[in-house]
């Protein structure tokens, strides 16, 4: 069985000096998924870089929640397209190396 380390969201907020309400807003907009155990909110440690990125977008660049949603969507599309370009380039190589 695979296990994953979880982080307590409240501690994350204290460490980064951010308002827990922001995490609630991210959760409500579906940008992050959290696990609730008792009264505490947790999220997988693997999601930490993603959450830190959302925090930077909001607190360093002053981007509101709607902006973050749009950026996240566009960045995901960009990643998919880059992946597609990489596959197509590799397929082209087949013909170029003949």
């Amino acid at each position: 069985m695979q296990t994953e380390e979880m982080i307590i969201i409240n501690e994350f907020c204290i460490h980064h000096n951010i308002d827990p309400g922001f995490i609630d807003a991210l959760k409500n907009s579906g940008l992050i998924e959290v696990t609730i155990t008792g009264e505490k909110l947790f999220m997988p440690e693997s999601q930490l870089p993603y959450l830190e990125k959302l925090v930077r977008l909001h607190y360093e660049m002053d981007i509101n929640l709607e902006g973050i949603e749009t950026i996240t969507y566009l960045l995901n599309r960009m990643t998919d397209m880059q992946q597609q370009i990489m596959h197509l380039n590799n397929r082209l190589l087949i013909y170029e190396n003949v």
Binding site: K53, R56, L57, E60, M61, D62, I63, I71, L75, M78, T79, Q82
Partner: peptide, 15 residues
């Protein structure tokens, strides 16, 4: 600064 950071921040310009 914020205006330019929104364009050039590494989070928005991976790689």
């Amino acid at each position: 600064y914020r205006k330019l950071a929104r364009k050039l921040h590494p989070d928005l310009n991976p790689n």
